[in-house]
C-alpha cells in the first residue's frame, strides 16, 4: 500500500493558553483535492499554515509521503509543498517586479534556466510575457492571483496549499482562477488542500472535504455525499443550508 501524500495525526495548535486546533486528523491521497471549510475562527487556516511550515508551534504528527516533518522545514520541503495565499494584493512584494518575485525560488535553490522556467510558469497560468517586468500594482486582482499561482508552480511541487484563493476576487475572475486551478491539477498531477468559507467553491474544486468548528474537524465526507445531502453533523448541514440560501437566486 502506498503512503498518502499528506497524513496528519492529532494536530494540536495553541496560541498561548488558548487551543485553536484541537486534535485534527486527516489523510489526503496523492492527486486528491481536499477542502477544509468552516467559519472564521474555526481554525481552518491555522491547520493549513501548520502544513505549510509557517506555524511552527504545533504538536501531533504531520507526514508527507510517509515521512514525518519537523516544525522547522528543510529547504527541500518547499520543492514539494507550495502555497497560494488569500490576498492577491498582500502576497506579492510591492517593490519587486513579477520577474523577481517568480525567480526568487530559483535563485534560493540555485536552479538554472531562469528565463525558461519563468516563462513556462507564466504560460502555465495563461499570463502574457509582457507582465514579466511589471510591478504588482500594475496588474489586476485576477492577474496578481495568477502570478501567485505561478510562483507556487515554479517550484514544481507535488502539493499546493490554497488559502481562500478566490475569496478576494470578483465572481467572474473567481471562475477563471477556479478553471485554472482545476486544469493545473490535472496537467501537473497536483494534490490540493484548500481552505475556504465558501461551500460551493470547495464543492467545485475538491473531491472530499472536512468541516471545522471551534478547532475540531467535526466531519469528513466526499463532495458527492455533500451534494446528495448525506452530511450527518448538524454544523455541516447548517453550512450547506446557508451556502444554498445565499447562492440561489430568488
Amino acid at each position: 500500500m502506498t503512503n498518502p501524500m499528506i497524513d496528519v495525526q492529532d494536530l494540536r495548535i495553541a496560541f498561548g493558553p488558548k487551543e485553536v486546533v484541537k486534535g485534527v486528523t486527516l489523510s489526503v491521497p496523492a492527486g486528491e483535492s481536499f477542502g477544509i471549510v468552516g467559519e472564521s475562527g474555526s481554525g481552518k487556516s491555522t491547520v493549513l499554515r501548520a502544513l505549510a511550515g509557517l506555524n511552527q508551534h504545533w504538536t501531533g504528527e504531520i507526514r508527507f509521503e510517509g515521512a514525518p516533518v519537523a516544525s522547522k522545514r528543510p529547504r527541500a520541503f518547499f520543492r514539494k509543498v507550495q502555497m497560494v495565499f488569500q490576498d492577491p494584493f498582500g502576497s506579492l512584494h510591492p517593490r519587486q517586479t513579477i520577474d523577481r518575485i517568480l525567480s526568487e525560488f530559483l535563485s534560493v535553490n540555485g536552479l538554472d534556466d531562469v528565463d525558461g522556467r519563468v516563462n513556462r510558469a507564466l504560460d502555465a497560468v495563461a499570463l502574457p510575457q509582457s507582465v514579466r517586468f511589471r510591478f504588482p500594482h500594475q496588474l489586476s486582482g485576477g492577474q496578481r492571483q495568477r502570478v501567485a499561482i505561478a510562483r507556487a508552480l515554479i517550484a514544481e511541487p507535488k502539493v499546493l496549499l490554497l488559502d481562500e484563493p478566490t475569496s478576494a476576487l470578483d465572481v467572474s475572475v473567481q471562475a477563471e482562477v477556479l478553471n485554472l486551478l482545476g486544469r493545473l491539477r490535472k496537467s501537473h498531477g497536483l494534490t490540493y488542500v484548500m481552505v475556504s468559507h465558501n461551500m460551493s467553491v470547495v464543492a467545485h474544486l475538491c473531491d472530499r472535504l472536512g468541516v471545522m468548528q471551534h478547532g475540531e474537524m467535526v466531519e469528513q465526507l466526499s463532495v458527492t455525499d455533500l451534494r446528495a445531502r448525506r452530511a450527518t453533523h448538524p454544523h455541516t448541514r447548517e453550512l450547506v443550508e446557508l451556502g444554498q440560501a445565499l447562492a440561489s437566486t430568488a
Binding site: 505549510a52 511550515g53 509557517l54 522545514r73 528543510p74 529547504r75 527541500a76 520541503f77 518547499f78 520543492r79 507550495q82 502555497m83 495565499f85 488569500q86 490576498d87 498582500g90 502576497s91 506579492l92 512584494h93 510591492p94 526568487e104 525560488f105 534560493v108 535553490n109 501567485a148 510562483r151 517550484a155
Partner: peptide, 16 residues
C-alpha cells in the same frame, strides 16, 4: 505579511 511568508516558502534563510 503574506509576501514575506511567500518568500519564506522558497526555503530562503532569514538573513536572505
Amino acid at each position: 505579511s503574506e509576501f514575506i511568508e511567500a518568500v519564506a516558502m522558497t526555503g530562503a534563510s532569514p538573513w536572505r
